[in-house]
Amino acid sequence: MSKNIKKIAVMTSGGDSPGMNAAIRSVVRTCAFHNIECVGIYRGYQGLIDGDFVEMTARSVSNIINKGGTILKSARCKLFRTPEGRNVAHKNLLKEGVEALIVIGGDGSFTGAMIFNQEYGYPVIGIPGTIDNDIYGTKYTLGYDTALNTVVDVIDKIRDTASSHNRLFFVEVMGRDAGHLALNAGVGAGAEEILIPEENLGLERLLESLERSRKSGKTSSIVVVAEGHKTGENVFGLAEYVEKNLPNYDIRVSVLGHLQRGGAPSCFDRVLASRMGVKAVESILEGKSNYMVGINNDTIVLTPLDQAIKGKSEIDADLLRVSDIMTI
């Protein structure tokens, strides 16, 4: 390990996700283990520009591994998108004596880190934190497993009332550009149909599937809809269309919204965050920069930030086939 780096900063940026606090804890305690100073930056890039820094020690991150959200807060920052804003951020880091930056967030946050590195040669490492699981270079992102379990738990509860009243529920989950959450939750909760951005089911096929389910004896149904699905209608429009064409169904819509982001992280996310935090700090100490930490085949790996940003996470084609078989 290189001992040239003496002070590292960590921040969370973009949408919060369960496991971010566990990752902060891991970064801070890995720094302490290697006798490196660590500072936290409040409110992401906005705090970087405002100079909102706080010293962090092993004890300052006690009892946060089980908490959702992020103790360092998060914020959108338009000013960091400008050269002037990034210049102020760079001066603040130099003034504080910080020599490297760890950014926990999604592709937007990584884009900012990559540009910052290109302009100033400043060492940066990214840790992927987003419930959408849509970052290239990692099988899982922090928060995805927790959100998935939250969604399945909620759908299980919705199915209870759907069965009691012989209803069809459209359940919208997050996933503007990727359907990982909808697909896995749909299979896990036994949904009759799953609508995702990667596949256009088509309105007619949706009607045929629901009518087939009704004729086969199903008295209630669940359709899981990713918010970025390509079927052609928003979730309320879908409900209206089906209600008009299949009047035998009593239809309801449930938009899960931000409850998917909250809650205590699962054990999987806590362990993953701990592993990623250690890898991020030790990669910096080894002289590496402009990488994202990820996990593939249960091994912690590094992916260049530009590939993580530009690459596309692939939907599991085999799981799509499984979902088709399960809807019979």
Rank of each mutant, 00 (worst) to 15 (best):
4 N>P: 00
14 G>P: 07
15 G>E: 09
16 D>E: 12
16 D>Q: 11
20 M>E: 00
24 I>P: 00
31 C>H: 09
35 N>V: 13
42 Y>T: 04
53 F>R: 11
53 F>M: 14
62 S>F: 11
66 N>L: 14
67 K>P: 07
70 T>Q: 03
78 K>F: 14
80 F>G: 00
82 T>P: 03
82 T>I: 10
84 E>F: 13
84 E>P: 07
90 H>K: 13
95 K>R: 13
97 G>P: 08
99 E>F: 07
104 I>F: 04
116 F>C: 03
118 Q>S: 04
118 Q>M: 08
119 E>A: 06
119 E>V: 12
120 Y>P: 01
125 I>G: 01
127 I>F: 04
128 P>N: 00
136 Y>F: 13
142 L>Q: 00
144 Y>G: 04
148 L>R: 15
148 L>Q: 14
160 D>W: 06
161 T>W: 10
161 T>C: 08
163 S>L: 04
164 S>G: 12
171 V>N: 01
171 V>T: 06
177 D>G: 02
182 A>E: 03
188 G>S: 14
191 A>M: 15
192 E>Y: 02
194 I>M: 09
197 P>T: 05
198 E>F: 07
203 L>D: 01
210 L>Y: 10
212 R>F: 08
226 A>D: 04
229 H>D: 05
231 T>F: 02
233 E>Q: 15
234 N>Q: 10
236 F>D: 13
238 L>M: 15
238 L>D: 12
244 K>V: 04
247 P>I: 09
249 Y>C: 02
250 D>T: 15
258 H>P: 05
258 H>Y: 14
262 G>H: 07
268 F>A: 11
269 D>H: 03
273 A>V: 13
279 K>D: 02
279 K>P: 07
280 A>Q: 03
281 V>T: 09
289 S>D: 03
290 N>L: 06
292 M>L: 12
294 G>N: 06
294 G>R: 03
297 N>P: 06
297 N>G: 02
302 L>H: 10
313 S>R: 07
317 A>S: 14
319 L>S: 12
321 R>D: 12
